[in-house]
Structures are given as structure tokens and as C-alpha cells.
């Protein structure tokens, strides 16, 4: 059976996986379109790696269905290995092998591999080709890991915690690399617990907590979804009564520090404040706002999920 080109690149329906008494993944469903950079985000131990390992056939799910490019990871194992490149967490290599020896070895495993020269160039490893693995820096080792995930010319690349342990410079370089991977028309499944990484790279993000899918959305959509309190600071053109603002449903509290007024609330808070003041003939100057970001959404949706479930606002 060959890999089909129609339909989603990755399709997971009702995935369940338990280790003894511990439920690692609980009824998880998601779908990734071809050419997407899709993030799987969640706190440590949320079940991200188990989900990915089930998806690529390294573990067999207890229940549910997984398809990659229409292939069944268990039944079509051999074909799947040809079209899915994987970089797993914490994979090292023998110290006494050179970079080009490693690349040529893994290249020989695949039916239609990519050229070593091209890959080495794209990953900035040209000057390290004759170096032993032992002598590579953390960033270079990680780039080599990514290179090994791509050497088989895969249609899907699965990258698990690829920037963990990298310094900020190496992390940025790796991100640039992932964007270039997408330009090769490769679907990227990116497992991460770093909000910034998901925000910068991913087209869509699945938020996972305690083995369950909490939300799937664009990073911006997830941020907006968080009902985290927002904050607006400004200076008023003339004195005003707090009651003007407190009358608005969006506003929850007001605090004054000298000239500056801090208003906390939710929803379209800036609009509400500006309009309420304008109705009184007052102008707000030097407006500053703290927008919630993916990190807020992450904390909100993962830590308070139990309460939300209890309130029935998330099922």
C-alpha cells in the first residue's frame, strides 16, 4: 500500500494509551493538513511523546485509529518508515563517528534519500563534515538530529523537543531551519513544551494536558481564547470618577498611581475604556496594554482545566 496524497497528513481519532494504571493518552483526536507546521504543546508528562510514538507506530494504541498519509502505522510499518522522518527526544550517536559517515549510513536506509551535500548546506554543517560526533556542540548535534530526520526525504517530519537544552542562539537557528523544511513541502509535527517556539513556528497548535486534548487552534486563536484578565494603563486628560468606568461590564477594577490609571478587566477592554471616557469628553493618553499571549492561554487552559470542567465550560 502506498502513501496517499489526498486527505490529511496526520489523522488521529479517539487515541487511548495506558501504561498499567496510568492513562497516558485519553480519547485524543486531531488532524494535520499537508504542509502545516503543527505543534503539540503541553506541560511535561502531558502525553505528547506517547501520542507521537503511537502516531509513528513505535507504540500500539489501546484504542483509536491513526493514519499518516493514509497509512496505518502498525500494518504499513515499512512504507511509513520511508515517508516519515523522526527526531526523537534525547537521541545521541557514537562519539567516534564523523558527521558525513553518520549521514551516509542513514542515507543508505532509504529508498529515495536526499543528497548529503544539500542537507549539510541547508543545516550549516559544511565545516563539520569531517568532525567526530563527540566534538559537536549541542546546537550542531541537534542540527544533525534534524538532518537525520530529513535524510530520507520524508513527507512528514516529526520533531520531538528539538530545541530542549539549546542556547537561545542555537534555538533561533533551529527555528529558521524548520521554516526552511516547510518550504520543501514537508508537513512538520512539532512536539514542544515551549510556548515561544509554538507561537513563532506553528500554523496550528494542539494543547494537551493529562492525556487529553484541551484545545486546537492557531497560536493567536488560542491566546484570544484565554479569558485571562487584561490590563490597560493610561493618563486621563482631566480628572474623572471611577464609577464611569466601573459601570462598564468589561471593567473589573481600577487603580491609580499618580497620573497613571490602571484598569483591569476582560473582553474588548481598551475600546470600553476609551469609549466610556470619550462620552464624558475625556481623552486617554499614552495607552499601554498587556495582551494575553499563548503562555497565558497555556497556563489558563492547563492549570484551571479541572475547575472549568467542573463548571461545565469545557468538556
Amino acid at each position: 500500500m502506498g502513501a496517499s496524497s489526498d486527505g490529511p497528513a496526520v489523522e488521529v481519532i479517539g487515541l487511548c494509551k495506558r501504561y498499567g494504571e496510568v492513562v497516558a493518552v485519553d480519547d485524543l483526536s486531531l488532524s494535520v493538513q499537508e504542509g502545516e507546521i503543527f505543534g503539540v504543546l503541553g506541560p511535561n508528562g502531558a502525553g505528547k511523546t506517547t501520542t507521537v510514538e503511537c502516531a509513528i507506530g513505535l507504540r500500539s494504541p489501546d484504542a483509536g485509529k491513526v493514519r499518516l498519509l493514509g497509512l496505518d502505522p502498525q500494518a504499513d510499518r515499512a512504507e511509513l518508515r520511508e515517508v516519515v522522518g523522526v527526531q526523537l527526544q534525547s537521541g545521541a550517536l557514537p562519539d567516534k563517528l564523523r558527521v558525513d559517515e553518520i549521514l551516509e549510513l542513514y542515507r543508505s536506509f532509504y529508498r529515495r534519500p536526499t543528497e548529503v551535500d544539500e542537507l549539510v548546506g541547508a543545516l550549516g554543517l559544511e565545516t563539520k563534515r569531517r568532525s567526530y560526533y563527540r566534538s559537536l556542540s549541542g546546537g550542531q548535534r541537534q542540527r544533525l538530529n534534524v538532518a537525520l530526520a530529513l535524510i530520507g526525504n520524508p513527507r512528514i517530519a516529526v520533531l520531538d523537543e528539538m530545541t530542549t537544552g539549546l542556547d537561545p542562539q542555537a534555538r533561533r537557528e533551529t527555528w529558521g531551519l524548520i521554516r526552511r523544511v516547510r518550504e520543501r513541502n514537508v508537513t512538520v509535527l512539532l512536539v514542544t513544551h515551549l510556548m515561544e517556539e509554538a507561537e513563532r513556528l506553528c500554523d496550528r497548535v494542539a494543547l494537551i494536558d493529562r492525556g487529553r486534548l484541551v484545545a486546537i487552534d492557531t497560536p493567536a486563536g488560542l491566546s484570544a481564547r484565554a479569558s485571562t484578565t487584561k490590563l490597560v494603563r493610561f493618563s486621563a486628560s482631566s480628572p474623572f470618577d471611577d464609577a464611569i468606568l466601573l459601570a462598564r461590564p468589561e471593567v473589573s477594577s481600577i487603580e491609580r498611581r499618580g497620573e497613571r490609571v490602571s484598569v483591569t478587566g476582560s473582553g474588548e477592554l481598551v475600546n470600553a475604556v476609551v469609549l466610556a471616557l470619550a462620552a464624558e469628553g475625556i481623552t486617554a493618553h499614552g495607552i499601554e496594554m498587556d495582551r494575553s499571549n499563548l503562555e497565558d492561554a497555556f497556563l489558563e487552559l492547563t492549570t484551571h482545566r479541572q475547575d472549568l470542567v467542573a463548571e461545565g465550560s469545557l468538556s
Binding site: L88, P94, Y110
Partner: peptide
């Protein structure tokens, strides 16, 4: 055992070999 510790065997199981 070194290959197992390094994750080389795990890595191989994601390739066609």
C-alpha cells in the same frame, strides 16, 4: 548496551532498517 543508552536502537526503529 551503549547503543541502547545513547538511543541509537530507538532511533533505528524509526527508520526502514
Amino acid at each position: 548496551t551503549t547503543y541502547r543508552e545513547l538511543g541509537v536502537l530507538h532511533r533505528l526503529s524509526t527508520t526502514p532498517v
